[in-house]
Write a protein that binds this DNA or RNA. Structure first.
Length: 943
RNA sequence: GCAGGGGUGGCAGAGCCUGGCCAAAUGCGACGGGCUUAGGACCCGUUUCCAUAGCGGAUGCGAGAGUUCAAAUCUCUCCCCCUGCACCA
């Protein structure tokens, strides 16, 4: 048994000592690999092997292909999660403490984690250790943290440029808000890590007849305005008359809804009235001008929206039910009748459309709801109807006629907002109320004067598309996602009121939001080791202008910044050297934010030659079929996994275990399978010294052929970062081939050494430690890490050698079948087997037919070439073949070659079937079954 | 809803772009056999159905339709699943 951890430590130390992964600019062509940097709030779990490991495999492969490869790594700590973390520790949050304990964070460390910087530093150290254990070939000299002052200088410079280029704008923006802490809240600020989901609704005002005031209704479905028959209010609740910013006149809304509204509009209360007082009134539909009455609605919640809803009984089951209930209670509903304003071409969830039946009623019937039905049931009907109507509905009412529901909604909404009759309001759409960690209910606040990066800018989108066109996206099928991400991304709020990070240059009391400060940081790696010792004050914009944009000259920049001449010069050289050829790695979840912003910012800031060249997107890692998550408690810390299974087996399973884009599965069985195969390779390597070299046999040529094919295919796979395919070639097929080689009596030490040497090198990117170990077991003294990738000798790819082996296999399996059937039938035991090989003329006829499909020509040709051949026999054979002429393939073996291949394998075949074997040619055979032989399908005679 | 990706044998998962060599790689599982004191590991075989002294046939890759001499693979329609939807890293 190999001790993986010992082997890994040994080679990691040796690499460190040799400094082979800390490159500087040189003669060789550069290649830089970067992976989305880890957030410094927890050590890594095995899922991180996917992105960082894939990046490492690419780095290692490219290094062996002769590139000067740089794989740097930094750490992200910007934003609020680390602050929230510190606060939770302060509050003794047991959930968090438990989580930390799964990562073996000692209690005395947890105690100190009330300090955000301490947290970041602690985990950065942990993560770095984990990455070393995993064997990543990282240049640690270039490692920085996204909250350190030098990096902030760089980010300030970046935003200076964005500002100058007009990419920053100001506007209104809704955010989740805690009224207690007066803070924006994101997912990590809420109880149970719920993301506040915000969507927009429409407030529509209905003018009260004979009064200079309005009723405010909230609705998702403004397109149903033509179908409004009345308004519902809650007759038990208090209502307020108030003035609302952005709407002229005074308006009524439920008193208990005002608080939430006040975070989006400034509101002044004038007076209060009872809901019941509104009941006697009539009001005017702003879209149709029609007058409608106000009724009490049992289901109206005064806390939601404005506490008034417009009633569309034809299309809203709740409205329909409410009116029916009123009627049954003897309430005077003034003869209102449902008005249908749209029709659905196909009913998915409701009953079939019936002439004259109100749509809402159909959906209610579909769930068996009567007048006494529960709200749950009505809700179900509502959902179904809304879904169908939004998806398939076509408007039938008035000017909206013919429009789809979605289009009509936009059109009505826009028209009313322009006229000042409606306004947009934001609401939380989470199923359950969302609570801040402090216990207060989260609401929506609209922030004015919010700074945005304007990714909606048409010209910028165009440049980004141009940049994308020049990027090699792997896997290629994810390019679509990038295309649509570029189209879709719009304004992005760029600052926050709190959090760690860089101050926003245009508004010094705000912090640049954490995804926005890390869009071009990869370029910072190229110079970080040169400037690490400088003071922030040295890093003036002119310095970055020179380094990244080539503006100005060394002398001036050196003088102005106080940085010495050599460093300035080197920094520019380093950037231009490393940044021309880059590969960016990340998970699929970042396509719609980070990676797209990465493209946008590069396109805006850098010269074309420094735009991204390659983006590799990889899937996640699942643990025994389930997503790893804190809540499931199935996270495997990286260090634990490596300690238990070894880094290389873990790497192999996680990185090579699935297609790039699909998720890979961690399971113990697979890891053990890999370990066993490594052991087997190791055994073969140790057995080598005892083996002699001798004359090459057929099976040796076969192994050579397989080896070269393997190199060819593994190389192609690595070029496309198809790591699953590559791993199949490199390890799994290797084991199958070695097994066969041995079974077929292969024992040529020279051949085997060459084969194993190449396999060892192929394995290097994915299993670097094992590769080094085997490489030395084979007697080498260099690092396999810095060796050349094996090259293909096309001449040694020998199809015939492989066909020969396939022939042997298929013959054996045919023999076994025949024997089995015979024994079943006659009960007699077989004692010997004759293999009879088809005559050359059969082969000739078959090949001729396969190419030409001309029976005449085939027979003539065979007759001409084989004097002994009877015309009858040739014709009969050719006719039989004609029946499936379309399936015929050219046979590349001659009778002689077929005979040779099988004769040489007699020993193997007879040991496989357990009895004596005789091989003969058809024309020499006296067997009655001889004529049944086909090319590559010898006749079998069992005696 | 919008966007992106999928649906293949007991399971996982290739193949699909570039139609035929695909009853469909590979791994796992199950079954039978070998090795072994026994188990594990390892090795060999079987693993849709029917037929059969092997080389044949039927059904078949979410459902349906189409194109083609030929479809898991191309086109259309439908159904279902997964992921993301933003200021959050």
């Amino acid at each position: 048994m190999m001790d993986y951890n010992e082997i890994e430590r040994k080679w990691q130390d040796a690499w460190d000592k040799a400094g082979i992964f800390s490159p500087d600019p040189g003669e060789k062509e550069a290649f830089m690999v970067t992976a989305a940097f880890p957030y410094a709030n927890a050590p890594q779990h095995i899922g991180h092997l996917r992105t960082f490991g894939t990046a490492d495999v690419v780095a290692r492969y490219k290094r062996m292909r002769g590139y000067n490869v740089l794989y740097p790594m930094a750490f992200h700590a910007t934003g609020t999660p680390i602050l929230a973390f510190a606060k939770r520790i302060k509050n003794n949050d047991s959930e968090l403490v438990k989580e930390l304990q799964t990562f073996h964070v000692p209690d005395h460390e947890i105690e100190k984690m009330t300090d955000p910087l301490y947290i970041a530093n602690y985990f950065i150290k942990e993560i770095r250790e984990g990455m070393k254990l995993a064997g990543y070939s990282i240049d640690w000299r270039r490692s920085f943290v996204s909250i350190e002052p030098l990096f902030s200088k760089f980010v300030e410079w970046q935003f200076g440029i964005l500002s100058k280029k007009g990419m920053l704008t100001k506007g209104r923006h809704p955010v989740g808000w805690c009224p207690n802490e007066n803070n924006a809240v994101g997912m990590h600020d809420t109880k149970h890590d719920v993301e506040p989901e915000i969507s927009s609704e429409t407030i529509i005002r209905f003018k009260l007849e004979d009064e200079d005031s309005y009723l405010l209704c909230t609705t998702y479905r403004p397109e149903t305005l033509p179908g409004v028959t009345n308004i519902f209010v809650n007759s038990e609740a208090e209502y307020s008359l108030c003035t609302i910013e952005g709407m002229s006149g005074s308006c009524y809304a439920a008193k208990s809804s005002l608080k939430a509204l006040s975070y989006q509009f400034s509101i002044k209360e004038l007076k209060e009235i009872k809901g019941s007082e509104l009941l006697s009134k009539m009001c005017i539909n702003p879209y149709t001008g029609k007058s409608v009455p106000v009724f009490p609605g049992y289901f109206v919640d005064p806390e939601i929206g404005t506490g008034c809803v417009m009633s569309v009984p034809a299309h809203a089951p709740f409205d329909y039910m409410a009116i029916e209930k009123l009627k049954s209670q003897g309430y005077d509903t003034k003869g209102v009748q449902p008005v249908s304003v749209l029709e659905v071409k196909r009913d998915k969830h409701g009953t079939d459309a019936e002439e004259g039946v109100v749509p809402a009623l159909r959906y209610l019937r579909a769930v068996n709801a009567d007048v006494n039905a529960t709200d749950e049931l009505v809700k179900e009907a509502t959902k179904a109807q809304y879904k169908d109507e939004f998806r398939y509905g076509i408007m039938t009412a008035g000017r909206l006629s013919g429009l789809s529901v979605a289009d009509a909604r936009e059109s009505v909404r826009k028209e009313l907002i322009e006229k000042g009759e409606a306004s947009e309001i934001f609401v939380l759409t989470n199923e359950d109320p969302v609570y801040c960690r402090c216990g207060f209910r989260v609401m929506v606040k609209v922030v004015d004067n919010q700074w945005f990066i304007n990714y909606g800018d048409k010209e910028w989108k165009k440049t980004a598309k141009a940049a994308l066109a020049g990027i090699r996206v792997l896997p290629e099928k994810s390019r679509n996602a990038f295309e649509s991400a570029i189209d879709w991304i719009d304004l992005r709020a760029v600052v926050r009121a709190q959090g760690l990070g860089t101050k926003f240059p245009l508004e010094q009391d705000k912090i640049i939001e954490s995804l926005s400060d890390s869009t071009i940081y990869m370029s910072f790696y190229t110079i970080y080791n040169l400037i690490a010792k400088l003071k922030p004050a040295n890093l003036i914009p002119e310095f970055f202008d020179y380094v990244y944009l080539g503006k100005g000259n060394v002398d001036e920049v050196a003088r102005a910044s106080g940085i010495d001449y050599e460093t300035v010069k080197k920094a520019r050289e380093s950037f231009t050297y490393w940044y021309k050829n880059t590969s960016r790695h990340s998970g699929p979840d970042l396509i719609f934010n980070h990676l797209t912003m990465y493209i946008f910012n590069h396109a805006a800031i850098f010269d074309k030659e420094f735009w991204p060249k390659q983006i590799v997107v990889n899937g996640m890692v699942l643990n025994e079929g389930e997503k790893m998550s804190k809540s499931l408690g199935n996270i495997i810390p990286l260090a634990d996994g490596i300690r238990k299974y070894g880094a290389d087996p873990m790497r192999f399973v996680e990185i090579g275990g699935a297609d790039l884009f699909s998720d890979s599965e961690f399971n113990e069985r697979a890891v053990n399978g890999v370990r066993e195969r490594f052991e087997l390779l190791n055994e073969y390597c140790s057995a080598l010294p005892a083996m002699d070299a001798g004359e090459l046999k057929g099976i040796d040529y076969w192994l050579y052929s397989k080896m070269n094919k393997k190199i060819k295919e593994a190389t192609a796979a690595m070029e496309n970062v198809e790591l699953r395919l590559a791993s199949t070639h490199m390890l799994y097929n290797t084991i199958l081939e070695l097994r066969r080689y041995k079974q077929r009596g292969g024992m040529n030490g020279m051949v085997l050494r060459e084969y194993l040497s190449n396999v060892t090198l192929l394995l290097q990117p994915m299993a670097p430690h094992i590769s080094e170990e085997l490489w030395h077991a084979l007697g080498n003294t260099s690092f396999s890490s810095t060796e050349k990738w094996p090259s293909v000798d096309e001449d040694m790819i020998n199809e015939n050698a492989e066909i020969g082996e396939d022939l042997i296999d298929s013959t054996i399996s045919d023999i076994m079948q025949v024997i089995e059937l015979m024994q079943k039938k006659t009960g007699a035991k077989a004692t010997g087997v004759g293999i009879i090989i088809a005559s050359q003329w059969k082969c000739d006829i078959m090949n001729s037919l396969a190419v030409k499909k001309d029976i005449r020509q085939a027979i003539d040709m065979a007759m001409a070439n084989h004097k002994e051949l009877q015309y009858d026999a040739a014709a009969k054979y050719a006719q039989a073949l004609m029946k499936k002429v379309n399936e015929l393939r050219v046979v590349s073996f001659t009778e002689e070659e077929e005979f040779k291949a099988l004769s040489e394998a007699t020993e193997y075949i007879s040991s496989a079937i357990g009895m004596a074997v005789r091989v003969e040619k058809e024309e020499e055979s006296r067997s009655s079954r001889a004529a049944r032989a086909h090319p590559m399908k010898p006749s079998i005679e069992v005696s």
